[in-house]
């Protein structure tokens, strides 16, 4: 697929974004992350990431405001070539940025992928314990993802790829009603060199849609370094 086509897809995303701006229960945010992946050995790999989230649009106004900063670590054990188990720990700094609660998050994850020629399907189940200052939230999530290179069946250096996913989330905590969320994500990535991947995309979230739906659009940018 040509780069002009890729560009058109991105433009279409931004065009639809403009339409959504008329809603008042709507917020637009951006998330930028930088991640480092390392293979310790065949079976074990580690990931470190820094992620920043910021408001771009809230209360019917465009404005830039930092929201939080995440420090993330994941350890992944490959059970075989397409099954893996991961454990994650994340610290979120929010209090000194926008006044929200800081958070310690523990994650347990199971991932399964299935490849069919160029298409690859991924099923991911996560359990999270979000430990906030006055509250602990237990969250279960399931994500279905699909990815493929934009040219041929194999991703070569210099080529672009597409990643799309849908995720359902259920949050439980002691004093609040269970909350259901849904997220749809599309991203375009580019394998710049053997070690560097760049990704851009959008994520649309329906948060607490069983209670009082809030809609959020995220603009995602990330750089992934493999060493």
């Amino acid at each position: 697929m040509s780069y002009t086509k890729t560009l058109l897809v991105l433009l279409a995303c931004f065009a639809s974004l403009n339409l959504l701006f008329s809603q008042s229960d709507f917020e637009g945010l951006g998330e930028t992350s930088f991640a480092i992946n390392t293979d310790i050995n065949n079976n074990y790999k580690v990931n470190f990431a820094i992620r920043s989230r910021y408001y771009l649009y809230q209360e019917d106004n465009f404005s830039f405001e930092n929201r939080q900063l995440d420090f993330v670590h994941f350890s992944t054990l490959n059970l075989d070539y397409n099954h893996s188990v991961s454990f994650g720990i994340q610290y979120r700094i929010r209090e000194s940025i926008d006044g929200g609660s800081n958070e310690l998050r523990l994650t347990q994850q199971f991932n399964y992928t299935k490849k069919n020629e160029a298409l690859r399907f991924g099923h991911r189940i996560r359990f999270e314990q979000r430990i906030l200052e006055n509250l602990t939230i237990l969250r279960s999530r399931y994500r279905f993802a699909l990815d493929f290179p934009l040219n041929g069946e194999k991703l070569d250096i210099g080529e672009a790829y597409f990643v799309g996913s849908m995720e359902a989330l259920l949050s439980n905590s002691k004093h609040e009603k269970p909350e259901l969320d849904h997220r749809t994500t599309t991203q375009l990535g580019w394998l710049v060199s053997e070690k560097i991947k760049l990704q851009f995309g959008v994520e649309y979230r329906f948060e607490a849609f069983n209670l009082n739906t809030e809609q959020k659009l995220f603009l995602l940018t990330s750089a992934i370094l493999k060493i």
Binding site: A35, N37, N47, A49, V72, F74, T76, S84, S86, G88, Q109, N111, T113, R120, G122, R124, A145, D147, P149, K154, L155, D156, I157, Y161, V163, Q187, G189, L191, E194, Q199, I224
Partner: peptide, 9 residues
Amino acid sequence: PTSFEHVLY
């Protein structure tokens, strides 16, 4: 191993 790794995180 394919350079095309799933975007896990």
